[in-house]
Amino acid sequence: MNVKVREEGDVTVLEISGKIMGGPDAEQFHGLIKKLLADGKTKHLVNLGRVNWINSTGLGILIAGYTSVKDDGGQFKLLNVSERIDSILMVTKLAGIFDSYDDLESALASFQD
């Protein structure tokens, strides 16, 4: 899993590519989220458009990110959820937990102050 971070106004966009599979990915992503929150960045948009696949452990990584940001009073949303990832979210009944968008403009507009 590779993560690139960029800013779109006051929203932090996390561009993930590769596979979200657990192992070292979990520590890497969790550490990044904690650092962003410590820096006062509480609006997180996770772009999954270049993620090949995710497994249940990878799903746990996203859940951990969502929980950390939410507990800090922030917002954690998903962008470009593939059919494959959507299938996993549906099967695990977590589709309703994550706010997800198909285009960047709509996603950015959805963040509230």
Partner: peptide, 21 residues
């Protein structure tokens, strides 16, 4: 059973995914 949507446990969904598919 599959953890409920309110249960944001990080693990415990792998076999539920396989079982569903």
């Amino acid at each position: 059973p599959l953890p409920s949507p309110d249960d944001l446990s990080l693990r415990g969904r792998g076999f539920s995914i396989m079982k569903a598919l």
